[in-house]
Amino acid sequence: MSVLVYTENWEGKFKKLSFELVSYASGVAKMLNTTVTAVSIGKVEDNELKRLGNCGANKIINIINDQLITLDNQAYASVISDISKKENATVIIISNNNTGKAIAPRLSVRLKAGVGSGVSRLPLNINPFTVYKRTYSGNAFAHLVIKSDVKILTLAQNSFDLIETANNASIENLNVSVDGSLVKTSVKDVQKQSGKILLTDADIVVSGGRGMKSPDNWPPLVELATLLGAATACSRPVSDEGWRPHEEHTGQTGKIIAPNLYIAVGISGATQHLAGISSSKFIVAINSDKDAPIFQAAQYGIVGDAMKIIPKLVSAVKEIRK
């Protein structure tokens, strides 16, 4: 028996979410009295792999294969399911990000394993195996029993604290053979944003809504974000209008994020918007309407004109960063 965790890498590096995953896996393994095996696919240096050990992985399996350079859901699921069988894994943990959502359901069918998607706490119980998951777009949480022998959990980002202790994990470089007939997709072109803090990675997010009135009013908001090391986001009408790029749209039909701090400027707080941000640790609302629903979701609020308030916040942050 073991807990298997798939840790994606980005150009050979792991991210905070990878360490969250391994820490979470280690928590689950403790409950089950077993060990953690981390699986990484692609070229990653040993030093970087070792960091997974510090979060609780006992063993790290490193796979390099030319057929696995770009994500092919079917091929990845096949490789990970073979390893989990070999490792006798009873729980498999993956991120609830795009990659995790692409692989977990395929793995589920291969292993006849029930999926608990978007879990944000350690299992509530191991017998029956019960997880805590988001449902109704954040308006309810469910206690979900997974009845199959093997269980797959996808972990919501920023929902679990890192545990770091020095630990010497073993690294095993594994040659896998990939059945070429399984690789049926090919990537023709890649476009990457560079130099921007990604919305899904950011600890702080500064977000603007229709109350910002015009795309010309964004520079102070962007300046505030830059000073705070934050990513920028927006409500749906703002991206629909083309005031801001689509990647910034948060909410039910956009990105679902859980930063430590979400600053909502000129956003009314519609249910569909809150669906994307309600897991943020702290929400700040800046809105001229004291009855705007966003204040019910917020821990800190300022009732007033954003155009006047944002420049003052910029000065205040500059003051403390002196």
Partner: peptide
């Protein structure tokens, strides 16, 4: 393979300051 046995509301947040 799975079954929901209970629902709960999101943890209430502190009132806005």
């Amino acid at each position: 393979l799975t079954q929901i046995i209970e629902f709960e509301k999101p943890t209430p947040r502190a009132a806005c300051k």
